[in-house]
Design a protein around this nucleic acid. Sequence first.
DNA 1: GTCTATAGCCAGATAGAC
DNA 2: GTCTATCTGGCTATAGAC
Lengths: 204, 204
Amino acid sequence: MAKPSFRQQMLQVREDAIVASVNRLLAEKGFDLMTVDEVAADVGIAKASLYKHFVSKEALAAAAMVRVLRDTLDVVRQQAARPDVDACERLQAVTRWALQRQLAGEMPTLPSQNSTLRAELIGNKAYIDLLMQVSEQLGEWIVAAQADGRIDRTLPPEVVLYTLFARACDPVPGVLKSGGQYRDEQIVDWVLAICFRGLATRPN
Amino acid sequence: MAKPSFRQQMLQVREDAIVASVNRLLAEKGFDLMTVDEVAADVGIAKASLYKHFVSKEALAAAAMVRVLRDTLDVVRQQAARPDVDACERLQAVTRWALQRQLAGEMPTLPSQNSTLRAELIGNKAYIDLLMQVSEQLGEWIVAAQADGRIDRTLPPEVVLYTLFARACDPVPGVLKSGGQYRDEQIVDWVLAICFRGLATRPN
DNA sequence: GTCTATAGCCAGATAGAC
DNA sequence: GTCTATCTGGCTATAGAC
């Protein structure tokens, strides 16, 4: 791979700044309420310039989702590299990271209903590839945790997987945070504990 | 209270039809993607006629939310009237009802971010009153279930309350249903079991 | 590639006849 | 109260100069 020119590096930096803004605005307002004008103002460039980098609002959102999946995959790999840690603890570590990111206002949320956005994402190879990679690694850990007796064997692995994914858009942490009487760390501990106790093997 | 005239009864019936449509469309597409034109078409009247009944799109959504809270309060009272049922089982019954309604496509969801909608709801006395009544009864049951040892005593009751409320907009049931390989009843059982096992008293 | 200016569209809300 | 027709504003997206 050739060394990128200075010009290309500047472009990359700018696009990173755009995606970072989109990521934050998406977390704050969601796709439908986020406007391209806001993104442009937040980045500090003209709206028309944004459209030179990304062909549509949907493409902007997709780029933010790809970014968050890349970050997720980094965390997943980091957990996979830890020696002497069982599968259930790896799952908890990844889920904890997602909850922390959500509380920090940096977890973009997508309306599951918007069909134009769904079409864009399904057609986005990078997004689908990353989603598959994350799902496969988490799926392996889920099966292992069931074999270990840490997670209920009677639950289909996909039910467990979706339950974990759902923590990334769980409204409970935000509501508790807005109440203002608990520390972020405390909130994460509660939500994580409730989640994994719920998935645990039934005591007999 | 005077007997309503025939004309008033017809009006009431029409408004009920409007609210029913809004309820369904809100569940299907959410507030931002639901258009007033769609509601009018679904009810079978002109858009301008809708605005004679409800002053804004936000008011339409608020009416649907009031309706679902009224239905919820009915279920809550029905549970309160059952003899020889402990608090935890009452909570489970109400939560089960909410999950069933969601799977039936009749649980309207509100974007927590839309500020115009939040303002409308906070200013809506009927909505706030109903929300308080439901919350208070559920709160009592939560405290009782903690005293019974059915729910973890170390969790603040409001954390438990929000966790239960969140089942009404949990994405997991919908995702599992869209997969098409499980019966609704099975899905509800899993989500309910995961939820309440998560809240249960820690085994020692 | 960046900007200003604007096209085009769509959805919420209203006017005014009946 | 119901309708048809229209207004209005805001948003996505683009034209065209530099």
